[in-house]
């Protein structure tokens, strides 16, 4: 699909934010990574159409931007849910039982890491160390609104509570009928 008009696709807010980045970076191309992040902040993820519109706006080839988008793990090229659950699985959390928590999450949400619940509300991701190792095991929940919340020293019970809360707020399938 070809985007006829970039400024029609990108919102005025997105364009304004990207243009602010142009002041910091010497070329439009150099602001590409920031621009991807901005678009994702507004849309939750970077769709093919958004990528093309952005490439046109930055005057680079779509493939150049795709090269960045597919390199960085926090740029999402597939839609994510309203809530993204980042499950830390690095050394300290692993030692403190993050595998069981992750399994619990997978069962409760019926998704595997990288997947989104059937209703499109909650996405489960594995994440490298979140830098809260003394509070392990930890999980971070990001929302479409751009807020992030840390959940520390998790246990099966606390996680159960967290999932219930998430499902209340965002929906998401449950293993219960």
């Amino acid at each position: 699909m070809k985007i006829a008009n970039t400024s029609e696709f990108l919102s005025a807010e997105e364009i304004a934010e990207i243009e602010r980045e142009f002041e910091i970076y010497p070329t439009r191309r150099a602001a590409g990574l920031e621009a991807l992040r901005i678009v994702q902040k507004h849309r939750g993820w970077v769709s093919d159409e958004a990528l093309q519109a952005l490439a046109a706006f930055l005057q680079v080839d779509t493939a150049e931007l795709e090269s960045l988008a597919t390199y960085y793990q926090l740029i999402f090229r597939r839609p994510v849910g309203k809530a993204v659950v980042y499950c830390c699985n690095s050394a300290s959390c692993w030692l403190m039982g993050s595998r069981d928590l992750q399994r619990q999450l997978q069962t409760r949400l019926q998704v595997r890491p990288g997947q989104t619940t059937d209703d499109g509300k909650i996405t489960l991701l594995e994440t490298p160390c979140l830098g809260d190792c003394d509070q392990a095991p930890v999980i971070m929940v990001g929302t479409a609104g751009g807020t992030y919340e840390m959940h520390r020293r998790l246990t099966t019970e606390k996680l159960e509570e967290l999932v219930n809360d998430l499902q209340k707020v965002y929906g998401g399938s449950s293993d219960e009928p």
Binding site: D61, T62, A63, E66, S67, T70, Y71
Partner: peptide
């Protein structure tokens, strides 16, 4: 229009 896509062992050389 030919770029390195992806990372680690999944690096892919191709077009968009």
């Amino acid at each position: 229009d030919l770029q390195a896509l992806g990372r680690n062992q999944q690096v892919y050389f191709g077009r968009a």
